[in-house]
Write a protein that binds this DNA or RNA. Sequence first.
DNA 1: TATTGTTATACTCTATAACTATA
DNA 2: TATAGTTATAGAGTATAACAATA
Lengths: 164, 164
Amino acid sequence: MTSPRQTPSGAAFLLAQLGSHAAARFAERVGELGLTPPDVGLLRMIAGRPGRSQQSLAQDLGVVPSRVVALIDNLDRKGLVERRRSTEDRRNYELHLTDEARRVMGQMAAIGSAHEDDLLAALDPGERARLAELLERVAGQQGLTPGVHPGFRRMGNREAGPPA
Amino acid sequence: MTSPRQTPSGAAFLLAQLGSHAAARFAERVGELGLTPPDVGLLRMIAGRPGRSQQSLAQDLGVVPSRVVALIDNLDRKGLVERRRSTEDRRNYELHLTDEARRVMGQMAAIGSAHEDDLLAALDPGERARLAELLERVAGQQGLTPGVHPGFRRMGNREAGPPA
DNA sequence: TATTGTTATACTCTATAACTATA
DNA sequence: TATAGTTATAGAGTATAACAATA
């Protein structure tokens, strides 16, 4: 006979599967605002600590500084973030949101609610709370930083690519 | 004062965050076996229906057939899958696992258990079951196929890349 | 003509390393 | 010499389109 369980492990697989799904749906939604998920994360991080440098972002995101250049370039081109030379140390920039960015973030909040609502349509409010509570405990035990999505750095594929 | 909630929505965000984390940890583990997460998914799909064609995989995975070529090339080079020309319709291949692949899948089962255990260390057995039950209902309502991870096709970035 | 698999090509994402300006 | 940011370059992942063999 074949293997007893076709479906993988259990909650761990469901978590990965649903997480990927949730991320994809979220990407669709914010895409309508002209944003990518990384854009959204960056905006939130800058909003949380205005004036922070690209280096500090690179550290918190776990990516290399040159990556942040491209990321911020995106937001800059969209008119959502401003680079101001620091007057104290003219090597670095102080990153600030524009008024436009603050407007966009208002829309993001609405999008977030709708997203949550659609995603968890199968659960009633009590069940959603229980789910959130369980997930929070898992996230805490796993050492995840609240509010920081680890989807920035690609998980290294330590193997060869396609043939030719 | 600033926005009342720094942390995004709630369970939806936690789901995406934990899902990404779970996937990354799983990638680490199977990497020690010389496999990538796509490898694992493919092996399971072939094991579930030996002899299936690359086209059928492409459909179930939601990727383009040329992508499957590279994916199967990988497994082929590792000696885990065999392409046998179909005798009925010599256009397509029948994909089969090798003995080595079956051995590897045994190890994968052990890895899966350890992964689940580490990931959900914060929860006792009853809580794990409750979590799985909630997640299953969400996954069902969202129309996710049991056992198929949607991480194959990259979610389209419908926006410009880095500057130059 | 339609279908399975393949190759050729191009585009995006991302990291590494070299470079500029400032300290 | 060390640090913030940038540019140049390269590698992996993926899709589109053109192609070969078979039906």
